[in-house]
Each structure stands twice: as structure tokens, then as C-alpha cells.
Amino acid sequence: MSFFPFLNRSRVRQDTFEDDVLSHVDSLFATALRMTRSQADAEDLVQDTLVKAVRGRALFEDGTNLKAWLFKILTNTFINRYRRGSLEREIISGADARPLSDGWMSAASMRQMCDAESQAFRPIIEKEVNKALEQLPDEFRIPVLLSDVEDFSYREISEIMGCPIGTVMSRLYRGRRLLQIALHDHALAMGLVKGEAVREDESNMVNLESYRTRKQGVGG
């Protein structure tokens, strides 16, 4: 029995869907802000997403992941409005074009950048994360946000972005490496780690094709 029965009377039963949708405003806004890099655009994008969700409510299958569905609408709306309908490949040049192997940083540098207690990067590095994210091309930034921040599975990200799982994996891989390289550069500049050359002998260590083959083998 509610303390405010008159409130219950005035609210109809179907309100739950709208409430559920609204409960994701912060998550959607945080991602939208990184997509558009502008508060006003992010607010418009989220509002547009939620209105579409309410209007297209019949398309949502009960029991499936509402959050993933909302992020799919958000991503599609962003791509349609700001990217002329596609996540165009952005050319990476300059410092970002360095080899993206796992051997580019030593275990010692990795330890120096981490904070044992928080199991995150040291605060002085963490405060640079937003700037590093901003510099990532959309096609890499979006999967990193969906995975790292929202914990969506590879399959969900593939549904949200409308691309194969292999593409999700390679974009996540590249996105994270680019981010980590930017943060490593910051750590170097701050004198937290010592500069080390990329160890070319390890630059062939990660071969995505062989990884996929191997993963399929393991799965099957």
C-alpha cells in the first residue's frame, strides 16, 4: 500500500517503459557527450534517442536488453546526423600510425602507469583519459565506450554498431592501443616512465587473423 495512493491513481500502469527508458539518461548522455564533443548536441542526441524509443516502443521485444536497444538508436542517430550515414574510415597518420603491437611498451612502464590500490591508472594519467578519448576516431571510440564503460558484450556491440564481431574486435583493439599510446606519451612527458623504443621483434606478435582462427577453433 502506497503512502500516496492518489499518485498511483494518476499514474497509469504503462509508465514503467518510460521510466525504464529514462533511467538510462546518464549513461546515454555520457556516451553522447563523447560522440558529439558538445553538451548541447549531446542533449539533443539523447532527447532524440528517447523520443524515438518511445515512439518505436512496439519494436522493442520485452525481455531483451533495453539498454542495448537504446544505445543502438543512439549510435544510429549519431551516425545519421553527424557522420552522413556511416562510420567512414578516418586516416590515421603521424604519431598514431606507429605499430600497434603488444610489444610497444615494457612491463615496467605498464606497472609505473598503474595504481595498485584503485586497479586503474594513476590519477595523474586518468585525468588525461577524456582528452585521449576525444582524439580517437569515432569508429574506434564508440566500441571502446560501449565495451569499457557500458560493459556490452562483443555480440551486443556488433548488433549496436551493425558490423561483424571480428570488426568490433579489431576496432576495440586499435582503439585501446591508440588510447594507451596517448596516455603513455603523457606519462613520458610527465617523467613517470622512461622512453623506450617499440620492440620490433614483438611487432608481429598479435596477428588478428590467427587470433580469430584460433578463437573459432577453441569455440568449436
Binding site: 563523447r34 611498451m105 605498464m110 606497472r111 594519467i125 577524456n130 564503460v149 585501446r176
Partner: peptide, 17 residues
């Protein structure tokens, strides 16, 4: 160290966003 670094990267992105 590699795993801790990869996890720290995930956590810090999440914290920041």
C-alpha cells in the same frame, strides 16, 4: 603486468566517462 595494465585501462575509461 600486461593484464593489470589492460584492466586499468578499462577501469580508467569507465571512471572518466
Amino acid at each position: 603486468a600486461r593484464v593489470k595494465f589492460a584492466r586499468a585501462s578499462r577501469t580508467s575509461v569507465r571512471n572518466a566517462v
